[in-house]
Design a protein around this nucleic acid. Structure first.
Lengths: 230, 230
DNA sequence: CGTTACGTTGATAGGAATCAATGAGGGTGG
DNA sequence: CCACCCTCATTGATTCCTATCAACGTAACG
């Protein structure tokens, strides 16, 4: 499992008792909607889930894509209401941990409480990084960053870091990175022409990871924004 | 104080014992640096603090501006290291709560634990909103949104919601909103010409709050990004 | 085999970044 | 106390990136 880390086997047992394996859900299925009552958190076992918030006007902003080992649902802890919508991008299996159980165990096991804080902290850093990527990088850099992020996560999961399938559409990538799908498509084509990657529909092969890294670190737009650092 | 909410007076007492009032810090002083060891969290009592992350290349991204009653330092919970830098924008007073003490009291008082989760959840929603603002709105909308956010926060603090001082520079506003300081300046001037606000250096008067709200909700760029909602 | 959603590619336009020059305040030192 | 410096802010001219509009190709699905 994914949640525990530094828990005693005794504590692990307690945790294990409250974890439920859910039925697989299919592409397009909604795990929870923004506004739904918060009932607990989910751990992705297989597949991929996207999380998105939205404005009153109905535009949606994708917050992240979640792969096996990653946790979703923390957005509901604040007010017992989910602020995000979670949708499966592929057939996916999840574990569910009811919040009532979880907080019971948390009071018994302080280490689990800490672990929960860490998870929320991770969400926060993820969003910090996303903000940095969006505000400081051009389209090229954002997409290169995105591809490398996927690559490193797949590697951790034991899959190939250079050859993988994108579970999300161009449109979703664009939404996530603050770009239009046309721009995403164009950048991917450009990277292919430059020999950085090879694209076959949803399948990507990274040919030159160093060059991609270089694109990530390219000159930032709004050089002068740095001045506020001083 | 700011942290408690729904705590018993008994619990409050425990909390009170571990809160330390710190010496006032001055404009430009650094409360903690990214990379510093995490020692505890701060509550702003007076003044204003900015929080920022940065890339390896040194560009900084301002994450938020924190006013009295707001909490900073949660970014350090994940790895016991701060991921943000906190800088005073004005002379400011803060309370400090050491993390060791805090987690001790948390295990005794589950309600406080929940409160901490809620605080982190609030940080998360704040960043979701910021992302939405940056990716879905033009410069005008971002700045109008920013002004209205300040306005409502000042109102809560008991200050005027239509007349206030901006503790941060144009450059910092721009950094926060993903714009250059020139664009910020231009938009503010434009709003003034349109009779929405009046600017006097750092002092702002909101003349037409409804019109500002309208600017916030204006047509979004990248209309087609919505399609991924379907 | 048509329908539909998704993806690619091209042409154009618009908004904000960049470059540049000038002005206003605040602090320091003579 | 005034002159100077330096940072912050304003405003204008130009450029560049990416959104937008549009047409077409391709894959998946019933």
């Amino acid at each position: 499992m994914c949640l525990p880390r530094g828990l005693s086997s005794n504590d692990l047992e307690k945790l294990d008792q409250i974890v439920a394996r859910t039925q697989p859900i299919h592409k397009g299925d909604v795990l929870f909607h923004a506004g739904d009552k918060f009932s607990g958190i989910f751990a992705v076992r297989t597949g991929c889930i996207k999380l998105a918030t939205s404005t009153e006007q109905g535009d949606e902003q994708i917050i992240g894509f979640y792969f096996p080992g990653e946790i979703i649902g923390l957005d509901g802890i604040e007010n017992d209401l989910h602020t995000c919508t979670a949708v499966a991008l592929d057939t996916s299996c999840l574990c569910f941990i009811g919040f009532q159980h979880l907080s019971d165990v948390c009071t018994e096991v302080p280490a689990l409480s800490e672990q929960m804080f860490r998870l929320m902290g991770r969400e926060l850093s993820h969003e910090h990084n996303l903000l940095l990527t969006i505000t400081k990088k051009h389209a090229d850099g954002r997409i290169a960053t995105f591809l490398l992020s996927l690559s490193s996560r797949f590697k951790i999961l034991g899959y190939s870091e250079v050859e993988f399938r994108l579970p999300m559409s161009r449109s979703e990538i664009g939404n996530y990175l603050g770009l239009t799908f046309e721009t995403v498509s164009r950048c991917l084509s450009k990277f292919q022409k430059q020999g950085l990657i090879e694209i076959n529909h949803k399948y990507i092969t990274i040919l030159d990871i160093d060059a991609l890294n270089a694109v990530c670190n390219e000159t930032t737009p709004a050089e002068n924004l740095r001045k506020s650092a001083s």
